[in-house]
């Protein structure tokens, strides 16, 4: 026997993942592929907004009031410029405002879910692994939180934050407050699922084997249990993303969300609905369709993920 066996190159996790049953199922599901493509396209558009947009709709220097209320695909009566999706009252290109709005919506949604995820996973792991009073307190708080509608929690937090921040910072703070508000209303389901999965995993023998050799509880939670409870988290995160985007839009629509200086899709819809009855339908319709497409594609992706990752259905 040689002292040191020849180093064998392990197959990378990426190549294993690409060949996995999961990817196989993905490649065979038209719904998954198309919803993934639509969502990816929207994300790409949001990320590359400054490159695609005809102008920065929130830089007043690029605006021409004369372009106001241009109908889609119709040359403006005064300037002769044509806008794909028309313009609003200020002469902003609706297509560009949607791209920038999408940016805000996606950023707020993703950040809120990330925040909820980190908080929920941490508390869920603690509750499941430590048990006892820690578990009782965490899960009772979660129960209480669940009795309030998410939107109410978000509005409450939003209201408090507004009350305590000075007026001049309000607009800057608004986005972050929005993220925390939506995140806080959403952590419970992560915590519940992670706790449930942790209760199952912690009694498995590999965890006992790790305890046996004197591994500390944080090490066991992070290195052993966490990787094994992530599948359901991924599903919830995807579905939550759709919900968070809609929650953000709802808050913004109600006027307690993103400020008009940093309008999200929700803000755009709120602004747009004021023009609906005067005939400028495009200011409302296009942001609304974008929001619908985004939420739907992410949601379909989440539904498919849930089926694909559910071992009982395979």
């Amino acid at each position: 026997m040689t002292d040191s066996p020849l180093p064998v190159k392990d197959p990378s996790r990426l190549s294993l993942w690409w060949q996995s049953d999961f990817m196989y199922a993905f490649k065979r599901s038209p719904v998954a592929i198309s919803s993934f493509c639509v969502a990816a396209l929207l994300v790409l558009a949001a990320v590359c907004a400054p490159l695609i947009a005809t102008h920065d709709p929130f830089d007043p220097a690029t605006l021409n009031l004369m372009n106001g209320f241009s109908a889609p695909m119709t040359p403006n009566a005064f300037t002769g410029e044509t806008f794909w999706l028309g313009t609003d009252d200020q002469g902003r290109d609706v297509f560009s405002t949607i791209l920038y709005g999408l940016r805000i919506s996606l950023f707020v949604g993703a950040a809120a879910v990330l925040f909820a995820m980190v908080l929920g996973i941490t508390l869920g792991l603690l509750a499941g692994y430590v048990g006892g009073w820690t578990e009782t307190i965490i899960m009772r708080v979660a129960d209480v939180q669940l009795t309030f509608p998410a939107i109410l929690v978000a509005m409450l937090i939003f209201g408090i934050a507004k009350g305590i921040t000075p007026v001049e910072y309000r607009d800057q703070m608004a986005i972050w407050v929005l993220i925390i508000a939506i995140g806080l209303s959403d952590w419970v389901q992560f915590a519940r699922v992670v706790r449930g999965a942790t209760l199952v995993e912690k009694n498995k023998e590999y965890v006992q084997a790790a305890r046996l050799i004197g591994r500390t509880s944080p090490a066991i939670m992070l290195k052993h249990i966490l990787p094994n409870v992530l599948s359901p988290v991924l599903v919830i995160a995807t579905i939550s993303l759709a919900l968070a985007i809609i929650a953000e839009a709802t808050l913004s629509f109600l006027g307690v969300g993103a400020p008009p200086t940093q309008p999200s899709l929700g803000t755009l819809i709120r602004i747009g609905q004021g023009f609906l009855f005067s005939g400028e339908w495009w200011i409302l319709l296009f942001p609304a369709v974008t929001l619908l497409t985004l939420a739907l594609s992410v949601n379909l992706l989440g539904d498919w993920l849930r089926d694909a990752l559910n071992p009982r259905l395979r």
Partner: peptide, 27 residues
């Protein structure tokens, strides 16, 4: 050390065999 009954539950499914085996020493 201990050897358990269920060979399917006693190895962490997300770890490579190398990391599983050396864990008692690495820890």
């Amino acid at each position: 050390q201990m050897i358990f009954q269920d060979p399917f539950a006693s190895l962490n499914p997300r770890w490579r065999v190398r990391d599983i085996i050396v864990e008692p020493v690495a820890a």
